[in-house]
Amino acid sequence: MRDITLGQFVAGNSIVHKLDPRTKITIMLLYIVMTFLVKRIYFFAIPLAFLIMGLLLSRISLKYIGRSLKPIRFLLVFMFLLNLIFTGGETVLLDLGFWKLTLEAILQSFFMTIRIVLLVAGASMLTLTTSPIALTDGIEKLLTPLKVFHFPAHELAMMMTIALRFIPTLMDESEKIRNAQMARGADFESGNIFRRVKSMIPILIPLFVSSFRKADELATAMESRCYHGGEGRTRMHQLRFTKADLFALLISLAFIAVLIVLLVLFK
């Protein structure tokens, strides 16, 4: 948890790592569109192929993808069962009287599960190959055109930057406060839920007070360092859109095109 700032990011030197974060976010969006365009289970082969290609190019080990799926394994099982139970259909395979197992239900269950697995795996590809800092930069740049509608793109990115910076500090601090209250005999482990929530107050209040103080001091320090909003600000690390980025985007578009053609042909 301490290294939450790096998120799931696995440093690397692959072509996928080197892509502009804006490109990767855009491709991610295209990929989501792809998985939602799929209406028949075997067409998932297209986004799956796309994902495998990304995986091979990024040289990210499959176990990292597995790790990101692990927390949602119960959700997946639950979704599968839900679809299996509540989807109707014609082709009855098993009749228990009060409930019929149908071929359509089985297909639908697999269909939904595969879609979620593909979405989560794709999203983790983005976070595994892009540092949160690069992501923040990418989001800021992509949202910049929205400034015309007074959308606070810079402020949003600055907030994300500061949050990433301070999460580890606040984690350390809450650990210290917890120890201090335990030394005064506080008990965080026994009692019912209501008692336990109440026992958190001696941790939460000092943590809030400390966060406010941090915010205040940080604001002063930022002002002292000439911060005056996003106006006229430059960045040391420029995002660079290279040929590789163009190529990656074109490939993604090609995948979508193929998918659409297939969808039209096999309507």
Binding site: T5, I133, L164, E217, M222, C226, Y227, T234, R235, M236
Partner: peptide
């Protein structure tokens, strides 16, 4: 702890000059 703005050392050092454009 309360005067460094970004996670990575060099990005933080760049914060001031970035503000000056």
């Amino acid at each position: 702890d309360n005067q460094l703005v970004t996670t990575i050392v060099e990005e933080d050092v760049a914060f001031g000059p970035e503000n000056l454009g």
